[in-house]
Each structure stands twice: as structure tokens, then as C-alpha cells.
Write a protein that binds this DNA or RNA. Structure first.
Lengths: 234, 234, 234, 234
DNA sequence: CATGAATGAGTCTTCATTCAT
DNA sequence: AATGAATGAAGACTCATTCAT
């Protein structure tokens, strides 16, 4: 998996090794992937050019093909980065939540609205890939793999929680998973904020599992306004 | 609004007026819009070309610019067609459902999984536009307008149905609307079938409004297998 | 085989159909092949660009890819044209020479120094392809096929003419064929003129077949100086 | 003239001084020239890159510009090497042949089919330069100079040998020289072997000078099969 | 109205050359 | 001396758009 580099690593001052002549290959690759995510958000999948990416990274345009064989490879690696980061994030949060299924479920959902994962730029990038998935088997496979793992985890937790007669864990997992994706799209479209999305998702858990999520207690405290605004730019 | 033409209007036999040397402008336009939807599903937003559209419509490639000033206009008109069709569909279904809020809500949801609206090609086209929405104000506005009207209708119905203390109609409307969109994406990705999506959505209404949707009765009867397969090609 | 178009069809006055908007595809193709031969002579195989070819044909640069899928295809078609033209030329001359083997042999050799075949531009183009043949299987095959047919014809004629003990028709055919190619290279390098090349080749036949080509009678009369100069530009 | 280094100087074991961190400039230069010849044979003039050369020499790709100011200079020096080697070879063989014109002529011809001079790689390199000569004055001059000296030697020897009325030494020299070049091309194209080429060339001398080269005695004995195969790889 | 050849701007990609390390 | 990341010019190819026929 690719070494993570903060998406904010924008070339303000020539930090040692972050730009200019010479930098280790892996660092440049992450830098370019971050620039790709940013460019995807700015220009969209259809209009993104190699020059956009290079410019965004503060490098000359020829460099991108030096680190990635083709535009296609760059995009696939970008999706792979997003996919890995996404999976690592919810799995880590799930672990931290302990053994209680309800806590674990809430943790996974909360993980999806994490500031790192659910940033405007990354949502836009995800959406760009979804838009192309239908006609790009590679993307479809990669997006599918992401959903598959996530879905299985949800099914298991739903199974553990749901008890009523006629309860269908798979269907519930699909409902919850779909809702999360739909909320991401609304966040991306600026219909709702990230925090609102998180609250809506967590509140819905109360509807699906009323006995395990007593009404009105699952939502995380809303962040201070200033911090919320700040992250919009990322 | 554009005159509707069946998406299946593929040039098999030269139906009177559908192709050949002369055809009325509006007919050609719908024909080209249908071809655009099909091409969008086949090649994706990023790769679609004017030639793809023309070829799909069985016409020479110079013709598209004759009926649409530019590629951009063609795409915008295609989105407008989808958007209008979508709105007309759920509004009509809602009307047919009578005055009972629960029936109306179920009708709207059911409308979203209508065979006409929720065909593989149209889902793919929608998804393509969503993917570009972030970086295309025009698309974002058009998609936003669609969601806005729909959302308002959902909020009103939720308000009419939900009564408990602490119930939030807006949040619930967002939850339901998001879920529907998420389910569309899963249908597009072939994770679930259209019928499964519909069932999951309707079942979820039971979770959100347990008193109005008594468990196990809202789902529509699943279609016969043969019919289901047939529509896959559309 | 490609319809032949005179290499001198340079766009001086917009002849009907020869340039500007609209011309039948085959005509454009020959025009572009001629331009390729000219560009090959001017810039060499390594430096020729699609723009050179288009410019030479007096057309916009985008047009070349409209008539040939790729630069590679254009070059292969150019070689095919040269190859076909070459073969047709010597076979036609051979036929015209009647049944006498000596006449036929002389006719074939003379055909190689034909003004049309052995023009500076075409020699340069041939040489360019030979230079790449070693590393381009396609060219090697096409050049090889040309030589093969020609060689076989020479072997047959040598067989018919040579009678001495220890005479080797194959070896003699190789000697004569190689000499012809070598002379082409010298003509191309301006070491000798086309007419000198022809005389040297025909005189050599006297050496190889002294009984059939009595000394001093086989060479064609040298052309007038003025005509000779004129064709240098082609 | 450049210090000769065997074309087989491939980096198998790091011979002392042949590679590694430090090596005297002249050695590196010959090493790179050999690599250029090999790369020319492998990829052709049009496709050869500085990186190919460096890789072939087992060195990093930045190094070539350190030893040669430009790609152009590298290629010119490579041609100069080939040209010098060629000239030195036939002149040395000629000297060794003594004073008899017939022996000297045969020696020169034999020299052209020398294993060192007439290796597959070097033939390919020569051919690559010939292909570009028409459009590269520098190459044309260098190739021309080579031919000029060689041609003069042939003319002198022909003059000494030929006696008949109407004998034209220049024409005969051109015939013989052209044939040799043509045979090289056939060897390069794998139509004939190096040994066959040599025999054909020597046998032809019998045709041109029947009194000095009594039939059937000029050809050198064909090599053993094993040795012949071995040199194919060079 | 319809066709399809022609145009030319824009993009990806390659690669000689430079230069910090 | 040597390395290999970085630069940027140049070229192949695509495709929206125009327009003669």
C-alpha cells in the first residue's frame, strides 16, 4: 500500500525533499496522487489533464509520466489509494470500538464521516470514479471490492443486532450502506454538511435498531463552526 | 419539455419518420438524446464522442451539431430530459396514490424503481452526470433542482407521518432520499437488482415509520424472471 | 493495389478535386503517399513527421490521421506503393521485351533505371526503408518479398543464358541484383547519375554473359543533358 | 582515430577498468560507441534513444551526455568509428596481399567480408546511416569519403588489370563496389550468409577479369559450420 | 436536411538534456 | 565520475466543429 502523505502537503515553502530537484520516488508518487485528487475535484474526471496534476503538484508536466507510465495508471493508483485509505480507516475505527456490535456499527458509520476520509476533495474524487465505473471494468472492480468488504462487515453486525421475526440482515446492510453513499453525494453537492450527514446516518441506526440505539443518544457532538469551515478548503 | 420517445427507438427498421433523409427536428433531437444516454452507459462521460452518439442513432456524424449547437448543449439537454422524466414520473405516481401520506410516500419510492426510470442505461447516465456535477455548475444546479423538489415532497410527507418527540422530518427525508440514490448506484454496479433495490427501500420505510408501514406488507410483488431479464438490455 | 497518381501532382493551382475541401478518399490517399515519399527524401525516416507530410500535400495536419489510422500505417502503405510500382514496372518491361532471355534480362535491368522508378525521391525513400528494415519485421518482410520475386526472375534468365561448366545461376543473379541495388545507392548519394548507373549495369551484363551481350552494344543512348537535369528535381 | 574495443565488450564480468564508478574517458567512449552500434541494430536509427545506448552499455542513462555533447555527436562518432575501421581493414589487407594487382583486388574484396567488419550488427549500423545519409549532409559526406577512397583504389587496380579495347576502369570499379554494397544489404536482410556473399563477390571478379582470375579458384574455402553460427550473435 | 471530408486546438507521451546529489 | 530525478520541447493522435457537396 502506498505511503500516506497528508493531502495538505501543498508546496508553500520548499520543505526539504518535498519539491524542487530531487525527491524520493515514493514521496513524489504520493504527492502526485494527492494532486490528482485535488485536480479531480477541481476539474472533474472528464477534463482532468496530466498538466493539471503536475501544476497542482508544483512540478513540470513531464514529470508525471516519469512516475506513472500513463494517465490511466495514475488514475488507477489514485483510486487504489482512496480505496485502501477508506478500508484502513473503517477497519481501524471498528477495532477501536471494542466488541459490542452496536458500538462497532456506530464506529464504522462514524468512520465514513471522518474528516480525513470525507473531505470535499476526496468525495469529489470518489464520485468521479463512480461516474466512470459503469464503462471502466477496472474501476468497477476496484469500487466493487471496496463495497464488498464493507458490506460483509455490515451484514455481520446487522446479523448480531437484529432479532425480530422477518429481519433481513443483508437488506438492512444494503440500506445502511446505500444511505451512507447517498449522504456522501449530498455532502459533495453541498446539500448538507459533513456533520449533518454523520448525524443523519447515526440517527437512522436508531430507526433500524431501536433496541440497541436508544433514541437521541448516538449522534456525536457537532464540531465548532470555525473548524468546520476550515476543512472545506481541503 | 422534450417530447418523450421510447429509449428503445433503435433504428432496426426505418420506421416512418424516425430516420432516413428527412425527419422533423424534435424527433431527431429525442432520437439523439436517447443515443446519448445509451452512449453514456457504454463509454462513460469522459469518453463519449459526438461520433458515438451519431453512430448510436444510425446517423452520420456531422448531424449532431446540426441539431445541437455544441456537445455541451447536447449533454445539458440530455440531463434535462432525464430530470424532467424523473420528476414527471414520481409526481404522477404520487398523484395516483391518493391522499394518504403513507401511500404517497410508498408511491414515490416505488416510482424511483420504475422500469422506465431505473433502467441500466439511465442509471449509468445519471451517475455520469453526478460524477461531473462537482466541477460543472450547470449540472450541479440541474441535479440540485431535481433533488430539491423531491426532497421537499419527502419532507412534507415525513412531517405528516412522523409524530414522536424528537422526530426530525428533514433528517428522515435526507436519509430516505440518500438511501434511494445509494441503491441506484448499487443497481448500476450490479450489486443488486432493480427489484431488490425496490424491496430494500420499501422495507426501510417500515423502519422509519413502524406505525404506518406494518412490517412485511409494503413490498411489491417481485416480477416474473423473464420480464426482468428482458429489461436488462435497455 | 493503389491507384497511381503522378508524384508531381503538387498543389499549384487548385485543380478540381486535387485539394481544398472535398476530394475522394483514394485520391487523397495517393496524394498523401506521394507527399510521404517527398518528405522521406527531404527529412529522412527518422525525422519525418505527420505535419511534414500534410504540409507537403498542402493540407492541414489533422487530415493524415483521417486517411491513415496511424503514422505507421502511412509508412507501410507508402512502402507497399513503392513495392507494387517497382514490381509492376519490371514485369511490364520484361513482357514488352519478347521471348529472348537476353532481351528480357536487359529489359529488367533497364527497368530498374527507369525515370519513374529511379527518381531521386523514390531512391531516398527506398533507402530509408532499407535502413529500418533490420529492426522492423514488417519492412523486412515487404522488402524481402520484392527481392524474392525479382531474384527468382533473374535466376531463371541466368539459367537460360549461362551454360559454361561451373556456372552458378543463383550466384550470378545475386551478383547482378546486388549490383543494381548498390548502383541505386550511389545514384542516391550523387556519386553517379541515373544514366551512368544504367550504363554500368548493362555493361556488366557483358561481363557476366559475354556470348549473349556482345561488347559495347547493350547500353541505351544517353539522354540529352537538359532533360536529365530537369528530372533531378522530381 | 578512436581506440578500438571489441564489439563483444558486453558487461559480463566487471573487467578491470571497463565499468564501475571510474573508467578513463576514452574507454567509456568506445564502450558507448559499441553500445550504439548494437542499439542501432536492435532498434534502428529512428528509434534509438540515449537510454538504449546507456542500458546496452550497462550504465546509467545520464552518462551518455557526459561523454558526448549530444546524441548527434555520439552518432557521428559512431559512424566515424565504423568508417575508420572499414578503411583500416581493407588497406591493411591490401598491403598484406603484396604487389600483384589481382591479389590486391581479391584481398580488398575479401576484406569487405571479414568477420569483424561484416558482422550483423555493423551491417545494420551502416545501413541505418545510409538510410539517413540523403537527408543528413554530415553522414553523406562521411559515407561519401569512405566510398571515394575505396573507389579510387578499385579504379587503380581495375586500370592495372583491364586491358581490352573499350574497357572502362571507372565503370568496372563502380560495378564491383556497388555489388559489394548490395551484397552487404542482402547479408543484413538474411537473404544470404556472409560466406555466400564473399564467394559471390570473388566469383564475379572472374567475370570482370577472366584472364586474371581463372575460373573457380578465387573463392576462399568456406568456414566450418560451428564458427559461422557463433558469429551470428555479434 | 444529410453527409463526410477537412480543420485545428488540445492532450498524452517520449526523450534529449540538465543538474543536484 | 556517476546517478537518476526533473525539465520542456516536440510530435502523434483525437475530436468538436465547420462546410462544400
Amino acid at each position: 500500500m502506498l505511503e500516506r502523505v497528508s493531502a495538505t502537503a501543498k508546496p508553500k515553502k520548499p520543505e526539504p525533499g518535498s519539491r524542487g530537484r530531487k525527491a524520493p520516488k515514493p514521496l513524489r508518487r504520493s504527492q502526485l496522487i494527492m494532486a490528482t485528487i485535488a485536480a479531480l475535484a477541481r476539474k472533474g474526471y472528464a477534463s482532468i489533464t496530466m498538466a493539471d496534476v503536475a501544476e497542482g503538484a508544483g512540478l513540470s508536466h513531464g514529470i508525471v509520466n516519469f512516475h506513472f507510465d500513463s494517465k490511466d495508471e495514475l488514475l488507477v493508483e489514485t483510486l487504489r489509494f482512496l480505496s485502501d485509505e477508506y478500508r484502513d480507516n473503517w477497519q481501524a475505527e471498528q477495532e477501536k470500538a471494542g466488541q459490542d456490535p452496536a458500538s462497532r456499527l456506530a464506529a464504522i458509520i462514524r468512520a465514513d464521516f471522518n474528516r480525513i476520509i470525507c473531505s470535499p476533495k476526496k468525495l469529489a474524487a470518489w464520485c468521479a470514479f463512480w461516474g466512470e465505473a459503469k464503462s471502466r471494468p477496472t474501476y468497477q472492480k476496484m469500487c466493487g471490492a471496496r463495497d464488498e468488504t464493507y458490506h460483509r462487515a455490515l451484514v455481520d453486525l446487522c446479523q448480531a443486532l437484529g432479532g425480530k421475526r422477518g429481519f433481513n440482515a443483508k437488506a438492512t446492510a444494503h440500506a445502511i450502506g446505500s444511505m451512507t453513499e447517498g449522504l456522501w453525494m449530498r455532502i459533495m453537492m453541498n446539500s448538507i454538511s459533513r456533520q449533518e450527514g454523520e448525524i443523519i446516518a447515526l440517527k437512522s441506526l436508531e430507526a433500524f435498531f431501536p433496541t440497541h440505539f436508544p433514541t437521541g443518544h448516538s449522534a456525536a457532538p457537532v464540531k465548532k463552526k470555525k473548524a468546520a469551515e476550515e476543512e472545506t478548503k481541503k
